[in-house]
Simulated assay, not measured.
Amino acid sequence: MLTKSDCHLSFLSDQELSDSLTITRIELFVIPALAVDSSGYRVCLRMLSNKGVGWGEFFAPESDSQIDLKQWSEPLRQFVGAFTDSASLYDSLLPAHVDGRLNELFCTAIDDLLAHTDNPTFIEGNTEETVLKNRSVAYVSIH
């Protein structure tokens, strides 16, 4: 399990959040693996914010019965909103009893997002979302 002490928000500093980080939407996608010899799924988290888009993902074997996007979406709701300093964001990390892969996805997406704050990536239209949703076997949007 990933806990607060294990989460390394390597790019996060109070200076970077001086303008506030506002997470407007979190999307979870479960996409079948593309490789012919792979049986499993890519579990992807896409975070949309005022500073751009962040991305996290992991591979889950086909036999993984722990992935329940409806159950996962409830604890992720707390991350939608404005964070004015690193402490408020850090304090929002998921408790230890929640599947640790959620914190891993979230931390990876935040690191990805803040690594590109000098050159933010904003989504033009819904092209990326449409492609991901069409390939997904499961999808949840939290906003």
Rank of each mutant, 00 (worst) to 15 (best):
W72I: 03
E104I: 01
L114G: 06
R77Q: 14
K133Q: 08
K70A: 10
G81S: 04
K70C: 08
I23N: 10
S49M: 02
L17N: 07
D64H: 03
L89Q: 02
G52W: 00
D6P: 09
G100D: 09
I142M: 07
A138D: 14
Y90Q: 03
L45A: 13
E128A: 14
E124D: 09
L102C: 08
L94G: 07
S86G: 00
V80T: 12
N134K: 12
F79G: 08
L12M: 14
D64A: 13
A35K: 07
S73P: 05
S88W: 00
L28A: 01
S49K: 02
F79K: 04
I142L: 11
T127F: 14
K51C: 10
Q66H: 08
S92E: 01
S20A: 13
L94T: 00
S73D: 11
L102R: 00
T117V: 15
A87V: 08
H97R: 03
T117E: 13
T108Y: 03
L114V: 03
F83Q: 03
D68G: 05
K70I: 14
A96V: 12
F58M: 15
D99Y: 02
L12F: 03
K4V: 07
W72Y: 03
V43F: 07
L93V: 04
S88C: 12
C44K: 10
T127C: 05
R135G: 01
H116Y: 12
G40L: 00
S49Q: 05
I31Q: 12
L89G: 06
S88V: 02
L89W: 13
N103G: 06
L48D: 13
L89T: 05
L132Y: 09
H97G: 01
K133M: 06
L48W: 07
A33S: 15
D14V: 15
N119V: 03
S38C: 11
E124L: 09
L2G: 01
S18Y: 04
